[in-house]
Design a protein around this nucleic acid. Sequence first.
DNA 1: CTGTATCCGTAATGATACTG
DNA 2: CAGTATCATTACGGATACAG
Lengths: 122, 122
Amino acid sequence: MSEPAWNPYDRNCPSRGLLDRISSRWTILIVGVLAEGPSRFSDIARRVDGLSEKMLTQTLRQLEEDGLVSRTVTPSVPVRVDYELTTDGRTLIAPLHALEDWVVTHMSQVDQARHSAREARA
Amino acid sequence: MSEPAWNPYDRNCPSRGLLDRISSRWTILIVGVLAEGPSRFSDIARRVDGLSEKMLTQTLRQLEEDGLVSRTVTPSVPVRVDYELTTDGRTLIAPLHALEDWVVTHMSQVDQARHSAREARA
DNA sequence: CTGTATCCGTAATGATACTG
DNA sequence: CAGTATCATTACGGATACAG
């Protein structure tokens, strides 16, 4: 009995949805923060500029549901919650960081190309 | 004079927008098709299930503007247009394929986690 | 501090029809 | 074949207020 042939090019394959999730802006950046170690809710919010509480919660819940992030509550007052990548979640670090890295290393080049494109249209 | 410190964690940095572009569902899948060689407009549309003409055009225009894809028109009747990754664009193949690959190899695991999560909530 | 719930505007997307 | 233009919808996301 073999695995299903997961294929994100098929719109009805669940892998299409998973691809959407892991390639979302907030997932990429949040995993980028968690890659450096466990973080508290507010720490993540502080490090990812423009991330609202709503989207942070939503993204963390998805990652948790997919078994990629674990959530630990310390019942102090006020309560403290730590998020951490699971073993599975850590396999996301390399591919997602590669994306971040690509962007940083190619931004200038792309910027040049955009200027050229503007001139060509002028 | 050094490069700007591109940082996608900053919401005002242009690299944030570039990250959004290259990590979009359609960009990933279209680059995946073009990774195998130059393709015609309709070929791409056929291979990416659920991709509308509008989004295909829009995504290709962005990739072109960013210097990642080239567009070649053959003025036959009917006209023939070929799209191809540029040298720069080919540097996207590895990171984006890694994403696709991650999804395919982890889908079953994630599926399990989702079922567990459902049970836990029940 | 760490959420949850709700409202609501906008931007992204899909469907459709039409053109060179 | 390879688009463009338009419209309708929706879903994403931000702001706000409130709770444990």
